[in-house]
Design a protein around this nucleic acid. Structure first.
Lengths: 138, 138
DNA sequence: TACAAACCCTATAAAAAATATAGGGATTGT
DNA sequence: ACAATCCCTATATTTTTTATAGGGTTTGTA
């Protein structure tokens, strides 16, 4: 399951996508719309900003805005950023690889090989679904 | 990512599959082979047994054994049993459904709809990969 | 029948991660 | 000047995961 952080991030991105002609959107408005704690959401938006998915404007009249087209924001990107690996095991993760302690040789581990296949097929899905897909179904 | 519980379960099932002509296998042997705590693994095997995936025999000469053919044990089954939902959000889970607090109407939530699609495609993968696929790659 | 081997069961401790809150700092428009 | 708003970091709280503990029950065998 996705963490609440990632779920909230997706809601926020959707909200920003819907209102992207309005210039900027307040954290407050997103938080209120979805009943999310303002401060918690603030941290999330900050992460998204640091990752280059959002822009912001400080001071009065400021807020957040998307700096990419919704079709250029795949779910895989958001999930990796906030939840970490998409792979089911550390030993098959592309972005967060770690060897596993319990198998002697990765190349002889059937679980490892199957999980590489699962990872690749899962990635196909999550790289092809984008914010645009969410927006067009609202 | 899978929990260690699920990962260990998959290793254990693989081990049991490999040795299924030997009658029964000791917890001890599986734990030692993969460097897993005996007691932790014991709890896991017990769960697998209660779920009808394993049989056991008590007393001297006892142990665990598979009671299904490896091709009849899909990854989805093991994951659901030990880790819970495969869906990314509670509001799209088939087996662990819960409404979500932050969207007003599920039928109008684009995220919900996209996640149903993701769930269905993910299930296709995890229902089709079985213990047999792991075994044949060892 | 005694005994040791092995699984069965439940409770609890320890560690890690997720969730949430807090509070002040910096910037900006009016 | 001031209020609105994002920026940053630290810490508290809760939940989940991981691991341990200890005794109970069953079974084969000498």
């Amino acid at each position: 399951m996705l963490s609440k952080k990632t779920k909230y991030a997706l809601h926020a991105l959707t909200y920003l996508g819907k209102h992207r002609e309005e210039g900027t959107v307040l954290i407050h408005d997103i938080a209120e719309e979805h009943g999310i704690s303002h401060k918690f959401l603030e941290n999330i938006l900050l992460e998204l900003k640091k990752a280059g998915m959002l822009g912001s404007k400080k001071g009065k009249g400021g807020g957040y805005y998307l700096i990419k087209e919704p079709q250029d924001i795949p779910l895989s990107r958001v999930i990796r950023l906030l939840d970490g690996p998409i792979a089911m095991l550390p030993c098959v993760s592309l972005n967060y690889y770690e060897p596993c302690a319990e198998c002697k040789s990765e190349t002889q581990c059937g679980l490892n090989k199957v999980m590489i296949q699962v990872r690749d097929e899962t990635l196909k899905i999550l790289e092809n679904k984008t914010l645009q897909d969410i927006l067009k179904l609202e």
